[in-house]
Design a binder for these strands. Structure first.
Lengths: 215, 215
DNA sequence: ACCAAAATCTTGTCGCCGTCAAGATCTGCT
DNA sequence: AGCAGATCTTGACGGCGACAAGATTTTGGT
């Protein structure tokens, strides 16, 4: 962070140029998505909130999808940071980093459900090719999971990709099913968030139960 | 199935009433979703395809969301049937039913990506309470997974819910991440579908590796 | 310092969409 | 036969994404 901190939001009444419209669009869009969901997001509404003409956003995001892609890129970056921070703050005991990373993944989904949905929603997925920023950020997150797995079975173990795959899909499925309310439907105990986190932790444990550092 | 098989689609030119509009809306919507994705689905477009006025669908589905909910209910029912059929067709060896159910789950997602997205998309999830038909169908599917898990660890084992939870989240996460193209991004080997299915199978195996029938 | 080019924002327009309202037509029941 | 309700039609309204053309400001080369 440098300069004047947060970007200006509403445009000063008299001025013709906004000055930081793109950043303001992204940050306001994130607020709308968090409060009302991705369905409530419209370019015209954003323009109105920012005191700008209805066609102004088009110069920064040619269509609605490109704005969603930007939000998704931002989300993947934040998720990657959360994962790395969680793993870094974990204790040294075997498996603690993986549990911490898993907690960070699920925590991100539950803390920012709207943002999470944009990241894994149909708009971004329907693109012919994933945008570079998404690719890079997703790869960084994947790397954190792989390292956490290596922390359990040892670096160089040939099962690292396979186990990272299992851990990631488990965490991701748990996050999305929880957000959809389907888990709570089958297992009423999961209504409370701490209980859910405990279940996820135990599921991760089941995955690695039979594995020594180097069998 | 009884009577004349498939419901009439386009309305006969001279007639005022369509006669089976609701069923025609659902089946045409499924086709549109499969071919162009949920984003391309609109009530007016459906009405046009069926040769019916633009406001006719409103009498069967008061708004767009209620149509999506109907599609989701149908999807959960089909997924449940696929799961049950897969498990029923599996051999008797320990674990085969679970693998077959998993294959059915992933197969449904990959065969009907649009439908799958509607089922787990934001529209249905944003509802205050899940509709009854969705609840029932989802419960039936969950039951199949639980039975498949019981087939591995033995009915009555206290770990059944926990392991079913792990299996379901793993399968669901694998399905959605594959559809989003994110798995392929990290593990190029997964570009081919059979390879992906093999990875899923091995991930399931990791989950149950350390478990005997009754330890 | 100057000015042309590019970036940024505005106004205006178009077609499509979901939704509501009011009326026409058909169907089933008594 | 006739009525009530279900089903479909026409018409209208506002919001939206997208496009086009013009106004204003900033930038960069000289």
């Amino acid at each position: 962070m440098k300069g004047k901190g947060t970007a200006r939001l509403r445009k000063p009444r008299g001025r013709y140029h906004h000055g930081a419209l793109r950043a303001a669009l992204v940050s306001t869009a994130l607020r709308v998505v968090a409060e009302e969901g991705v369905g409530a997001l419209s370019l015209r509404d954003l323009a109105r909130r920012l005191g700008v003409s209805h066609a102004a956003p088009a110069h920064h995001f040619p269509d609605r999808t490109s704005l969603l892609v930007a939000l998704a890129g931002d989300g993947f970056a934040r998720l990657g940071e959360d994962l790395a921070a969680g793993a870094a703050a974990a204790g040294p005991a075997r498996g603690e980093r993986l549990v911490a990373a898993g907690r960070a993944y699920v925590g991100f989904a539950l803390d920012h459900p709207g943002h999470f949905r944009v990241m894994f929603g149909p708009h971004v997925a329907a693109l012919p090719r994933a945008p570079g920023e998404v690719v890079r950020a997703a790869q960084a997150g994947w790397r954190v999971i792989e390292e956490a797995v290596e922390d359990v079975v040892g670096a160089g173990d040939p099962r690292v990709p396979q186990l990272s795959f299992a851990a990631w899909t488990l965490l991701h499925g748990a996050s999305t099913l929880y957000l959809d309310g389907l888990l709570r439907l089958q297992i009423p105990d999961l209504a409370e968030r701490p209980a859910f986190e405990a279940w996820v932790e135990r599921a991760l444990a089941s995955l690695f139960e039979s594995l020594g550092p180097r069998p």
